[in-house]
Design a protein around this nucleic acid. Structure first.
Lengths: 340, 340
DNA sequence: CAATTTCTGAGGTACGCACCTCAAATGGGT
DNA sequence: ACCCATTTGAGGTGCGTACCTCAGAAATTG
């Protein structure tokens, strides 16, 4: 049987009240007494029964995911995972809702953050580019006792536990390495397609990609990034004109999370050659494209893991508990046809 | 506020006792009454408060991991992850211990399984090749109310939730695809090194590997598997003689979990050429080798995920709860220098 | 219709902990 | 030795559920 607080009290030769004071860091206990209790904890191997504790505390956790208003299949998948997480975490008194934001309007995002009620919301995961307004709004939230994490986009200092997502520089480098190795000795140009290069994640991916290509694959040259702005017509126009004006295009790297639009257009080109195509994120579309060998590799992060990790981190911070770092590290996954 | 059983009783117009019977599938409730309660559950959106439930039940979970007695860094990592999981799951009344077995002695394994006390052990994760003895022992355990899963090795039917690990055929195919693409147009032979081909996982990896190479890279030929039996001298001998007798070796695929021994020997060869080297599992050694470009790619599975997944599956089965399938699917990860 | 059998209800206790109050003990300083 | 502040003890309540008992109601049987 696991030792209980009662056993602790007995072993330490103090009362339940004192054990309770020590366990919950309450004031009014002499140092020596604290020590006695801690020794008893060591000796008995006491662990708080979290079930009982959270029952007694009667606490529940309400989290919010701020997600972009616009998006395609990757975003849809993310929302599904949040719904799934709601089921999985229901037993732990955790609920997560989604609020859609204009990701390119920092002012509106700050407004949403500012209007959050600390009595209703315990934590927020924010998927938006970093900006001074958002940073300030987060700081104010922190003061009011609402935890926040940057989610997928907008990471700050690397290594900080404030960011849930992959290292985008490394992700770009991974794409670059695969592009280089998959291209063999072919000489040619590489098209890079992004939704926008405004976001820091895009920049970092591009940077990582270029670094590897420039260093190790000098026979490949990377063209300036094409920006789609999520617009179908524009995307079609710029891709077609790129293919028309540049000679052989031997590789295409789509570095945004939503790859469907540019991929569809590339696939409809009359004579694309056989470019190596690398994209990001697993969606029904990219999955099918990989299976049918229309694209060569995907660099992905697991959306379910992202969502659960954000939730676990927020909760741990609220409880002032340590997280299991190895579990929260989001991996950069490489997907090819065979390991889908 | 979340609805409680009391609210349920009120809404359904029955007593707490009846609500309890319905919730826990106990007998003695008329069908119509069950229906009424279920409707109330729907209507109020009632979810069991797992904290209270497990408190009331006073249950704890004791699991056992049966791991091979011999092993190197991969095994050590696994054991570390189990220790880590003990911390992470302590709050949920879960404890996992490790017992070492002779993986090649089915009789001994069956004995260990047979001697388990259902009062002390709730579930077992077994890392051992499948064999009739073990299968029978598992069946007997099931009858005595002890849950079991196959762990990493010894999977049975694919898609069954009895196996925690990757699809080894797909893992081999993944290695094959990378080997093919990384080899470029080079013509040559590929060395396959295994600890033993006795285990089913090795066979399946080899099968998947060969399929891809034979289908898509006819200029590469895969040599018969070398078996090291985990012996240093033997390993050195067979690898050296392979290099001596076969012409150009352009690729090496190490398909066992413990890659250090064969890798060390390959790295000490006087004139190995520039073979593409692919191995399995992330360990301090393979990690360093990847970083220093001595090997080209790793096919891995996350040991922490494996351990936690096994634990979650065992617990879910004991509680007769559904698992979150997407969380328990073990991914075949591809690691290159850039996404380590 | 009476005699069973099967359901149902009311109520209680326990689980391990958090949090509270009030009284009593202790120790340090003088 | 005395006072006062600080520390400690004893005890209670509540959290939401599990599980138990016993009595009473309803349905089923002959």
């Amino acid at each position: 049987m696991r030792p209980t607080t009662k056993d602790l009290a007995l072993a330490a030769g103090v009362s339940l009240a004192t054990v309770d004071r020590v366990l919950n860091d309450r004031a009014g206990v002499r140092k020596g007494t604290v020590e006695k209790v801690n020794q008893a904890i060591e000796k008995l191997g006491f662990t708080r029964n979290l079930a009982a504790a959270s029952l007694a505390r009667g606490k529940d956790y309400r989290f919010l995911f701020l997600l972009p208003r616009t998006g395609d299949q990757f975003l849809a998948g993310l929302i599904d995972r949040i719904a799934e997480a709601n089921l999985a975490f229901a037993a732990e008194m955790i609920r997560a809702d989604v609020v859609r934001i204009h990701e390119s309007d920092p002012h509106q995002i700050a407004n949403v953050l500012g209007s959050l009620d600390p009595d209703t919301i315990d934590g927020v995961a924010i998927m938006a580019p970093e900006s001074p307004q958002v940073r300030d709004a987060k700081a104010r939230l922190a003061q009011r006792g609402v935890e926040t994490v940057s989610f997928i986009a907008g990471q700050t200092a690397s290594g900080s536990d404030d960011f849930v997502g992959i290292d985008n520089h490394a992700a770009g480098a991974t794409a670059g390495r695969l592009m280089g190795r998959f291209s063999g000795d072919r000489q040619g140009k590489i098209l890079v397609i992004a939704e926008t290069m405004y976001a820091r994640d895009s920049l970092e991916r591009r940077l990582g990609f270029d670094e590897v290509i420039n260093a190790d694959y000098p026979h490949l040259s990377v063209l300036p990034s094409l920006e789609t702005y999520g617009d179908a017509d524009r995307t079609a126009r710029i891709i077609r004109s790129s293919f028309a004006s540049h000679g052989t295009i031997t590789g295409i790297y789509i570095l945004s999370a939503e790859a469907r639009l540019p991929l569809e257009i590339v696939m409809q080109l009359p004579d694309p050659g056989q470019p190596v195509i690398i994209a990001h994120e697993r969606t029904p579309f990219t999955e099918a494209a990989l299976l049918s060998s229309q694209i060569d590799a995907l660099i992905t992060q697991d959306p379910g893991h992202l969502v659960r990790s954000a939730i676990r981190i927020l909760r741990a911070r609220i409880d002032r508990r340590e997280i299991l770092a190895s579990q929260e590290k989001i991996r950069i996954e490489v997907l090819i046809k065979e390991n889908l």
